[in-house]
Every structure is written in C-alpha cells, then in structure tokens.
Nucleic acid binder design. Structure first.
Lengths: 145, 145
DNA sequence: TGTCCTTCTGCGAAAATTCGCAATAACTAA
DNA sequence: TTAGTTATTGCGAATTTTCGCAGAAGGACA
C-alpha cells in the first residue's frame, strides 16, 4: 500500500513537526512490509538500510505516526502490538485466536454501534481501528468449549 | 469482588491443572486490587506476602487464568495490559484516552453486533471482554482535532 | 546562505516481559 | 500414607520496550 509522501510531509510540517529521514524510512518500511507489522520487523528492515537507526527511534516513531493518524495500532491474537498504514477510510479486523488469520471489516459495520455509544453514553469512540478476537469459519468447529 | 474459590479449584483440577498457593495468591490479589490491575501491581501485592514468588510466575499465572476464563485481559489507554476478574456475565469498557477513565458497558450492547458478525462473516466473536477507546463526556469537547 | 531555536535521534541504562531448565511440589492411585 | 508422575515454580538470562539526556539536525527567518 503506497502512501502520499508529499501530503504527509506537508501535514507534519504544518503541525510543527519535522520530516526526518528516520521517519520516512520507518513509514516506508511499514508500507512495504504489509498489513500487520511488528516493531522488530520494522527495525530489521530499516536497520539494513540505516544501520545506526536505533530501536528506540523505531518505537518512538511508530507511536508518533500513530498519534498523527498516519499509522494505526493493531492488536494481534497473542496480545502483541503491530502497526499498519491508516487508510482514509478506517477498517477493522476479525482476528482468529486459533489460526491467527485476519479478516477485514468495512467501517460501516461499526457505524450504528458508534452512534449508539454516542447517544446513550455521550462517549465518542475512536474508530481509527478496532480488533475483535474470536474464531473464524474454519476454526470455530474444531475449537471445542 | 469475591470469587468462589472452591468452585474455581474444582474446575481447575477437573481440567488436569493444579491448585497452587501461588495461583490462589495471585487470584486473590486481582480481586482485592480492583477493576484493572497491572502485573506489576499484582507482583507488589503478592511479593509482600510471599517474597519468593517470582515475576515470571505472576505473568504466567495471569496468562493461565485468562485462558481458563477466570480472568479477563483489559487494554488500557496507554496500550498496556491489565487484568480483572471475569464475571459470569461479560462486560465491556469505554476507555477515555484523555483522562483514562473507565466506563462499564453491559454485555447487551454487543449482542446485535455479535450476531451480525456471526451471520455475515461466520465469525464467532469472543466477547469475554472488549475495550473501546475514545473520549468521554468531559474530555470530548476539550480534546480538539 | 547562514544562524538560531527546538525537535529528534542515538546511546546506554532501566524497566517490563518472556524463555529454558533444573528442582519442587500437587495430585493420583495404590 | 507413601511413592510416582508430571505440572508448576524460581532462577537467571534473553528479549522487548521505555527512559533520560547530550548532541545532531530540520526548518523558519533574516
């Protein structure tokens, strides 16, 4: 999934942040590595290109880009955190605890739920990304209990 | 929130697991410490009573009791993991990213959503506990963006 | 283009979490 | 009650993630 670098850079500068080679490398890495990328995978990838880029920077930049809504956090079945590019339209995941497969959900499935929380609890759900855990078609029968 | 020790112990033994003092101490600690307890808080608590009980055991037992559906994992606003006693009726949380407050949701709010995922995607959502992040009444106005 | 201000990075140490293995101790069955 | 089986613990090391601070460098402005 490609990203509009020029647009993102402009957005960052406008907010008073800086565009650094490290941030660009890390963002590129997440895009190239795919759908649910772990910090360690990002580090391995960028470290080959820029050997002095430190682990701390990887973690900091991933957090930072998430705050800027350029990336989104994804919880994996094992409870660990991964990241992916946050598209213009949010989407969500059904994560199978048995086979670790990811099923993408369109944002629309959460719309009415979100509206309900808004009116009933006056709580505004951040829907940049939500993961639900459970069992997929293939695993739900075999997984007893 | 108290727990029915006898019943839990019987359930564990029936499944071939053992009831150890460590497991009982850690379960007691989660109950006494309240709604969203971090591993570190559990360790501090049990360490006063049983100084040799190790951190590794705390983590392992928390995982174990979660697998047994005796505890439930709770994601905090900062992305860290906490635990709480899993009651007979699941409940869910609205977590405010600004003030870290927790709002409890009855299980019923997810019922129709769950049914929809089941029929539309043949995916069975595990609803022992779900956290939604966003902004509560008090914070949603002050938090710009 | 050069200077200045402040954000970012890199480093090393600290903290949090997981792992492997040998020793301990819970439970089962006699 | 005792002995045997094997799940569980504790320890220390490894791994993952965060922190604090001094130095590097992005970008605004002249």
């Amino acid at each position: 999934m490609p990203h509009n670098t020029t647009e993102i850079n402009r957005q960052l500068r406008k907010s008073g942040y800086r565009v650094t080679p490290q941030r660009q490398l890390i963002l590129d890495a997440v895009c190239q590595l795919g759908d649910h990328v772990t910090p360690e995978a990002v580090y391995d990838h960028v470290h080959r290109i820029a050997p002095t880029l430190s682990r701390a920077t990887v973690y900091r930049v991933l957090h930072f880009l998430t705050e800027q809504r350029i990336l989104a956090m994804v919880y994996m079945a094992d409870g660990r955190l991964a990241y992916e590019l946050a598209g213009p339209e949010p989407h969500h995941h059904l994560v199978c605890r048995s086979c670790d497969s990811l099923l993408e959900l369109p944002h629309s499935v959460l719309r009415s739920f979100r509206r309900a929380m808004d009116t009933q609890y006056d709580f505004e759900i951040d829907v940049s990304h939500v993961s639900f855990f459970g069992h997929c078609t293939d695993c739900r029968d075999s997984a007893g209990a």
